[in-house]
Design a protein around this nucleic acid. Structure first.
Lengths: 205, 205
DNA sequence: TAGCCGCCTATACTTTCGTATAGATGCACC
DNA sequence: GGTGCATCTATACGAAAGTATAGGCGGCTA
């Protein structure tokens, strides 16, 4: 019977999912409440076949946690689970070596199928979750940013003012304004807060 | 056997919780994926004893959805469920007439007890949810935000301007500025971008 | 009853942000 | 050489954002 490890910081969500999986009597289920605990379990006596990682969980740091887990236990399969079904995150997780992406908008029965699918050696990425409220404007927008604009965006993502950014980059405040204006236009947003939020959402910084 | 209605927009979470409750064979469980659907079920042929509402769900609008449900079906008990165990929200929900507050950091077994407790006519508010990973430090800061400030912060997290926020909340722009200024001070940040970033980091919105 | 608090509004002000225009440099490519 | 692009700078202006102060209203509580 395959060993599955569910890692989610919400006890209720984690326990009920675990209970549901266990009720199928097709898996042995382990749980963890953060990334560190998950890695501990992985290092334990039972070989984990599939690790299901919640995307929003202490220690995850975006997709960094996924990479860590993947690196430490290359034999185990790793799937990402997330409440916000973001196409971009799913895509990035795929290139990070994830074996699957499980949106929480999935029906419970479908999840079981997805898990079986992944354990059987396939990769599961349901790219049809267009139901949720994410606009499809690609990460391509970020590619059009110039070097300086990207740096400026980085500073923006710490919530700095134009003056502070200017100091950090060693340029004049006016120039920062120019970069900000241009990057706002390229990203299709109207102010710095939206730009920072968007960049964070796409895990650029 | 009591009828319970679970309303959560995440299929996976909702279905597994429902399945878990049903496995106890002590309840009949209904589900809904948003507030509107929940109200439809409430208006249906089966009298719902307890409605469990997810705080972050389409149609909820903060605690407004709770009040709507409570008003339309005063005989049914209503409990709020939330992933971000915010003491302030729990408190507010209590004064809004909620019969209970179920943080998702609760263990599955405890949830069953809580539900039984509520159905028996008691009110369940576990004000001890300091164990969870969430707001160990920042919880204090966020907990000190008033209802309006929290709403304002929510709008901030979409990158809206003061003017837009004012329109959305039905108040004057000056008032929004006041709320923004106060919440910035409470969170210990210097501008709206930092506030939005911080809130996002803590998964409040 | 008086006082506190959350909430709303108003006026007035400074600072920051974002836009518009224009000119300068350096680099790469044809 | 000429063209295009990224970069930097400057001046200037309107629009937001943020601060400060003062007052009104309703609910709660000592």
């Amino acid at each position: 019977m395959p060993n599955i490890l569910i890692a989610d910081d919400h006890d209720l969500v984690r326990d009920t999912i675990a209970a549901y999986l266990e009720s199928t009597e097709e898996f042995t289920v382990f749980t963890a409440h953060n990334l560190e605990a998950a890695l501990d379990v992985m290092a334990g006596e039972y070989p984990i076949d599939l690790l299901v990682l919640d995307y929003n969980m202490p220690g995850m740091n975006g997709l960094q946690g996924l990479e860590t887990a993947k690196k430490k236990h290359p034999k185990s399969k790793v799937a990402l689970m997330s409440g916000v079904a973001n196409k971009d995150v799913a895509k990035s997780s795929m290139s990070c070596g994830a074996d699957g992406f499980i949106p929480k908008s999935l029906a419970a029965a479908s999840m079981v199928n997805a898990i079986k699918f992944i354990i059987s050696g396939e990769r599961y990425f349901p790219f049809d979750f267009t139901s949720s409220t994410d606009q499809a404007d690609a990460g391509g927008a970020f590619a059009s940013l110039s070097e300086r604009e990207m740096q400026t965006l980085g500073e923006l993502c710490i919530g700095l003012s134009n003056k502070e950014i200017a100091r950090n980059l060693g340029i004049q405040e006016v120039t920062v304004k120019l970069h900000v204006k241009n990057l706002l236009a390229k990203l299709g947003v109207t102010n710095r807060t939206q730009a920072a939020l968007l960049a964070k959402e796409r895990h650029l910084f």
